[in-house]
Design a protein around this nucleic acid. Structure first.
Lengths: 231, 231
DNA sequence: GCGTCTATAATATGATCAAATTATTTAACG
DNA sequence: CGTTAAATAATTTGATCATATTATAGACGC
């Protein structure tokens, strides 16, 4: 296992000093979100202290946080791992996302400024570029960031946190499933959504969002039920 | 500040030894959920180590977990407190609860055994008794446990965790708001719900649940918008 | 196979360091 | 001379680490 970072003895004066547990949390979160840790993979404290060059305390806190968010699973004994998704789990996630994401898209449409739309368009361009390059990792990141910005615009912090948290649950599977499909067949209803938002059509944006979510999640569901078991 | 527990030097042999951070988490969670910590009240690590007779590490982990669940708020600097609810927050909570709780009630109706209904009836009796006694704390606990059991029966772990997590956000305000009303005017649509569940009427149970949630949350909303500020 | 032993990893403590708030002093101004 | 404001000191509290303890998994012998 390779080291990602050395322990910084003296901080090289980044503008704001973020506490170590926060940094570790963000790194570990990204590892889960973009599928660098596969479902079922065990997560150990000491493994992460070596990998990220951090002390035990910050690593412990980051792991606890991610367990609370459902990104990691505490296995009764004292082992922690990235959870597998069951078919039932996927069904629940589809249900929640199909309710909450259109709602947020609707709110976002009401609040979006020209500046916001520009930012979303730029992110969607990045996403297209990633698809053309066949760069799965970049696709996953751009796609996530697009949705994240929509949440922020919607100005509904509790719903946004809820929607954001769900990504941690299906992120690991997304990587596995989409990896088998190639980047050409991935869902992208963002342009229809942007058009609706630009026209102030909240219902249209919500419908586009629902379609986007439904397509993506359905691919995961099919892979987990139809295909051979991932376990 | 009075001590709740002494540090147990040797465990008095409870059957299963739960780790300290888990015990601390549950105690602190209950303190938030039932309003023993008021909105705005600061939560310090060292205060809790004294109050609960625990070391710093377990307390830190418990606090992190509760922050991740939205029960506590990290205030930029490094202070932690019980969050205040804004009118917008309440609006979001009403929206989510009115969607998810009826859904869970519907699922629960499909899965409920005679045993389950017996347990729910017993909990509802406790709730009635608490109302008669004018015992607010017991009402809050019985009410929560009733809903919690419905979640468990529904057999939808992700939705259940979601619904359960929301309680932490409005729990502190519930205590404040209901404390002003007296126990006679509190919502209780559990009997209609139980009747529907017993008859296998999922839609009826969902409707009763929606009504129960709407009544309770509306009281909180009115108190927070209409009444003088709680701050 | 079953029980015991050992190695490994998690849990928990207290000490140490750093940051932030509060209290106190000092200085400036009306 | 009193009041206010700035600067500084003191205290509280959070962050991190090194280390000791404890529990679990896997290996070994029976």
């Amino acid at each position: 296992m390779t080291k990602i970072a050395d322990k910084p003895r003296s901080m090289p004066q980044g503008h704001v000093r973020l506490p170590a547990h926060e940094l570790i949390y963000r790194q570990l979160r990204a590892l889960v979100l973009f599928g660098d840790l596969a479902p079922g993979q065990p997560v150990t404290i000491q493994g992460l202290t070596d990998l990220l060059g951090a002390g035990m305390t910050p690593v412990r806190e980051a792991i606890r946080r991610l367990i609370a968010e459902g990104a990691l699973e505490f296995q009764g004994n004292r082992r922690v791992c990235v959870p597998h998704l069951s078919a039932d789990n996927i069904g629940e996630l589809i249900l929640v996302r199909q309710w909450v994401e259109p709602h947020l898209a609707h709110c976002a449409t009401a609040h979006a400024t020209a500046e916001d739309l520009k930012q979303l368009t730029a992110l969607d361009d990045e996403l297209d570029a990633a698809i053309d390059r066949g760069d799965l990792r970049a696709y996953l990141e751009s796609n996530y960031r697009f949705h994240k910005v929509v949440y922020d615009i919607a100005d509904a912090p509790i719903l946004a946190e809820l929607a954001d948290g769900l990504w941690l649950r299906f992120g690991p599977s997304l990587r596995v499933v989409f990896g088998r499909l190639g980047t050409q067949n991935l869902p992208d209803n963002h342009k229809a959504m942007l058009a609706a938002m630009a026209g102030g059509d909240g219902d249209g944006a919500a419908a586009a969002m629902r379609k986007d979510v439904a397509q993506g999640m359905e691919l995961v569901r099919m892979a987990l039920t139809g295909g051979r078991s991932l376990r």
